[in-house]
Nucleic acid binder design. Structure first.
Lengths: 184, 184, 184, 184
DNA sequence: CATGAATGAGCATTCATTCAT
DNA sequence: TATGAATGAATGCTCATTCAT
């Protein structure tokens, strides 16, 4: 049909509205926010959420995948830099920025909730290896303690990015910087 | 009546049983565990939980107060030590041990849940000042970066103690040690 | 337009695909199966199902009408047989086979669901009279208890064909045979 | 406490109200009726239903257990009768009366719904053995076809008791009688 | 004081049905 | 005519909280 495209376009628009709404709601009330709230924020019915994202995990992943991919890409870019230590530092800094901006991801990463297991997997599959290469490079140059693994490092950084009253983005950045300093 | 004392004693016993039960349940299933589970574990009815602890926050605080006080006492003990840097280190190490043992507290501290706000206050009122003296001592001796505040440090340490699959107690200790190293 | 015929032909094809799909799905998951499953099986959109069969009852009827008509035809054929008792027996046997094969019809017949009321009517209008003639023939020859009505008999047979764990097609056949024996 | 009994008594009353309500609702709208409807009919909140009957199966069983037990007792009573054939007949007749009165049980027995599996078990465990003894007795006296098993017989009888428009209690009794006649 | 029965709001999820394209 | 996206009512279930005994 000739109007096939229109319907698909409409669906894509809805999907995007949902992602937008979910990102906001996740940031405000956490990844466990009621589906209804997300639907409401997006101005759609609950059924629509389920049509696009059969389970919560898929929605969470979809919301963060973009930025996770960007992070991975940045790591790629920095890999092989002549200054591995600095490269790692810059990457971690970008990662922190990502985490504190899209707050809610931190909680999601920390949670051992079944429904968010796949977010862990996504991280493990894309970010950890990417970060791993930077870590390896820095270790090879003696600019990082060989006892530091990419996973534990990212996990720690992720935790340090859990904001709260009296502990804001600046604090997170500062603390992560100190952690890194201590990893040399 | 002459059995006034007996009643009071009974109530105290009940209260203690509740604290014991809550500590266990919090560790196993988190601070958000169903009230009924706690009541059941303590062998009392739900109503009794509400009588002793009108809201969840009070129970959470009561459960952790003992250990928080111990932590504060330890800090007191270490204050004025001839080796302020080492003293801080030892104290933080004990704090970490406390956090990873009573897991659930980490989440509680991080959560911005209204009902747990008072736990923050408790920390602010007892632990932060205690820790603050150690920090001040270390700073005075040039063994700690003056930019480090007791609150942010504890917060960061607390976050680093949020365990999960692939990130255990050992990792937490190691990362906290690195953070401290980076704070000098 | 000249393609009027083509459109009609296409619609007919769609309709047949739907009947085919519905028959399969009804057999597998019962007459209450989700509309979407049927549409999916037929490779069409849900809207198409509604266009062809505005309500579930019409679809159910359409699905079974063919076989119901065949049953009626067989009854016609057997009517006036020189052996009325045997004729009835053979017809009932064929009816049983139909019911246990297209399982789901049994439930449909039994259900007093509003939306399936018309299936009852269909039976009443076609099968009952057809069966009635066989019954009458047998009664006339003294080969059947005059107290047996075609409707009650068919209803009973229909019920005996509701299969389940531990009660299969063989059992249904056997029990129906015994019921018939008891009707002489 | 002295008022322990009062609370328990109240709970028992509620439980009975629930069983009463459930029996009515099951009869009117089937065993799959919404929990809310049952709660409403009993004049209690949904939570109360779940407190007393954690899952639907338990409610269904509780509703019918009394009568199932009575049926089993009757079978016991009739076992060893000097007229095994007649004994079986009388028992089946009582069983039919039970089924057509508590209509809804028929559907429940027929359904292969997971949540009702335990009702099957209950029948299998209590009624089938009880009926089996009567069947054995009748078979031993040559008053019943040895090919008839208690389970298949009960299943068939159960099916014959599924009433509907134009097929009432009388019809069920008559058809069961004929089935039994055919089993000799 | 203790009890636990009762309540009902809250959330997830499914699916029949409508309608713009 | 066909499509499938969107809708929302219906339903199951959990759990915090109250209160009569």
């Amino acid at each position: 049909m000739g109007d096939e495209g229109a319907r698909v376009a409409g669906a894509r628009r809805t999907r995007e509205a949902l992602l937008e709404a979910a990102a906001q709601v996740f940031a405000e009330r956490g990844v466990q926010a009621p589906v209804r709230d997300i639907a409401g924020r997006a101005g759609v019915g609950v059924g629509t959420v389920y049509r696009h994202f059969p389970d919560r995990a898929e929605l969470v992943i979809a919301v963060y995948r973009h930025q996770i991919d960007e992070c991975a890409a940045l790591a790629e870019e920095l890999t092989g830099s002549p200054e591995p230590g600095q490269a790692l530092e810059r990457w971690i800094c970008a990662f922190v920025e990502f985490l504190v901006t899209k707050h809610g991801l931190g909680v999601a990463l920390q949670s051992d909730d079944m429904s968010l297991r796949s977010l862990h997997s996504l991280m493990l599959d894309t970010l950890v290896p990417a970060c791993g290469r930077l870590v390896d490079g820095a270790v090879a140059r003696g600019e990082l303690d060989p006892g530091v693994t990419a996973y534990a490092l990212m996990r720690a950084v992720g935790n340090l990015c859990l904001l709260g009253p009296g502990y804001d983005r600046e604090d997170a950045h500062a603390m992560v910087a100190r952690l890194l300093a201590g990893c040399r």
